[in-house]
């Protein structure tokens, strides 16, 4: 059975139109301008993933500041909203640096949630 899917590559701002064709165990990719495009199409067909970014409140006394966070790597697409819920549960206080791990191995994805902006109070 042949499965054909079209994607827009999100690996860089060019946004190539990719066509991935799966025949048996083989996936061939067309439309890419670089190697990353092939990887992306294969991943998108078999295990689509995204980096999740959001921002969370960090409290100190009665005030709060916003800190931006991300998953350190891409996570399965269907885990985005569940992971977001986990991040929203965070109760953060004090100071943070860029790269600080806020949640380790979020929802068993093997990926950490990290701070992308420091918070100094």
């Amino acid at each position: 059975m042949t499965i054909r899917q079209e994607f827009i590559c999100i690996a860089c701002p060019i946004g190539c139109s990719l066509i991935a064709t799966k025949e048996g165990g083989n996936i061939s990719v067309a439309g890419n301008r670089c190697r990353i495009g092939i990887q992306y199409a294969i991943k998108e067909m078999t295990d689509p993933r995204r980096v999740l970014t959001t921002s969370v409140r960090v409290y100190n006394g009665g005030n709060y500041k916003m800190m931006s966070v991300k998953t350190a790597e891409d996570i399965p697409k269907d885990k985005m909203l569940p992971c977001l819920k986990e991040i929203k549960k965070l109760d953060l206080q004090g100071c943070y640096n860029v790269g600080d791990i806020l949640i380790e191995d979020v929802l068993c994805t093997g990926v950490n949630v990290v701070a992308t902006r420091g918070v100094v109070l």
């Binding site: 701002p13 980096v51 970014t53 921002s55 931006s68 991300k70 992308t116 902006r117 420091g118």
Partner: peptide, 21 residues
């Protein structure tokens, strides 16, 4: 706060705040 910055300058994909940092 989204990612997609820095591929050319820093050779890695960063979020806006990380690029600024």
């Amino acid at each position: 706060i989204h990612n997609g910055f820095g591929l050319h300058v820093f050779k890695e994909e960063l979020t806006g705040p990380e690029y600024a940092h």
